[in-house]
Design a protein around this nucleic acid. Structure first.
Lengths: 222, 222
DNA sequence: TGTACATCAGTGAACGCGCGTTCACTGATGTAC
DNA sequence: TGTACATCAGTGAACGCGCGTTCACTGATGTAC
């Protein structure tokens, strides 16, 4: 705060951690104006360096965008994995926690979320991005695998399909209802409640009935 | 095709149907480059009018965008209503048709879909837009209402919640897997199959069991 | 049927602006000896 | 411990460009009489 303008003097000629600072500034702008709403030039101004400086760290604007998406998926994968926690203490509860982690990420990291899903990065943008995406999906898939392991062979749908369903449900709710003020309609439930109920009904359909009187979905809060 | 350059002579000084032409040109650009990837100037070039011409029809770029989103939701509502067809000939089949119509719209009208859901238009942009959105959702909700009418009172969740779930499932699948080449992973099912299965499992969970041997989901295609 | 006139819809030139990117440069840092 | 030098990371001025928007204008259309 005391080193306002240009913040020279903080470190002099060399910034020291410029690429990190550029990413943070870009995230701020994306959070405010969406993935299309940040410019390379604006980012340099926010950080207080010359407009040519970023080119030492990123080939161009798109490379910065892709790196942000990659970082987003890394964090996302970490968050989902932490929620799953190898299915501890109990697979069903852990599974629900994964869903809630999905929503929490969309809400708390809107800039990453937008960079990951709304930046329209061409499919094969970078190997690192693809790998990070796969890792995040892998957590979901592993959770579905574990959760359905107990079902009798005859009526156990492929875990791949189930994980795609779960991804779609969580993503749909996060996209439509889960961000700050986007599409805030008159809905008498939180996104979290909505997803919880959606998952319960879906799992019921799979034959993973979750003892409906287990959770307070009765009249305890009416 | 014969009136290339500027297409003057087609109608001379007055275009006759400019606002329509502007919308179409914008849709083409949105389909190619996303909602952020079209400029007012580029649209006028595509249509062959001066850069000042659009201002007779749209207050500014955002007004054009909002009008496109509104048109999109009108068509969307029409498509869903046509698929539902008042639940004829049979509610469950009609309901599935609504889901398929959702995917078909996302695939066949990617520009409208993007304008509707990815343009980041501020919530209260226009009353017409809000009304069109509500009409589309109303179709979904009515379908859910009809479909669940037969459930015993005790185990019938609110139709509002169910319609939100259905919207989220369809929207999640459409967003993640349903557009041309976006996020095309190695998935051994079409979005349509994925949604069909998702709906069946979900409806099963609701107690609307759909006689699983009704449709060819067994080994007939293995 | 013909003329005068109001209104409408598009013109084209101009504006100021912010953008991405390049270039030769230079200050700071780290390393060899 | 001190000096020479290579490398690294940021400078700042400049470029050409496309953008959104404005303005006074003018050609075409429709209507009153």
């Amino acid at each position: 705060m005391n080193t306002s303008k240009r913040s020279r003097g903080r470190r002099g000629y060399h910034h020291g951690n410029l690429s990190e600072a550029l990413v943070q500034a870009a995230l701020d702008l994306i959070a405010k104006f969406g993935p299309a709403g940040f410019s390379f030039a604006e980012v340099t101004r926010a950080v207080g360096v010359s407009p040519a400086a970023p080119y030492r760290h990123f080939r161009d604007r798109d490379a910065l965008m892709a790196d942000i998406a990659r970082r987003g998926f890394e964090r996302f994968a970490d968050a989902l994995a932490a929620a799953w926690d190898s299915g501890q203490p109990e697979p069903l509860a852990a599974f629900k926690a994964v869903g809630q982690a999905y929503l929490a990420f969309a809400r708390n990291e809107p800039a990453y979320f937008a960079a990951m899903f709304e930046a329209r990065l061409p499919p094969g943008t970078s190997r690192e991005l693809t790998q990070a995406t796969d890792r995040a999906f892998g957590v979901l898939r592993q959770a579905c695998e574990t959760l359905t392991a107990g079902l009798p062979d005859g009526q156990r749908p492929p875990a791949l399909m189930i994980s795609l369903h779960v991804w779609a449900m969580a993503h749909g709710i996060a996209s439509l209802f889960g961000r700050g003020d986007s599409a805030r309609r008159n809905i008498p439930m939180t996104p979290e409640q909505l997803l919880e109920a959606n998952m319960l009904i879906y799992l019921d359909g799979l034959g993973l009935g979750a003892a409906p009187n287990d959770d307070g979905n009765g009249d305890s809060n009416s």
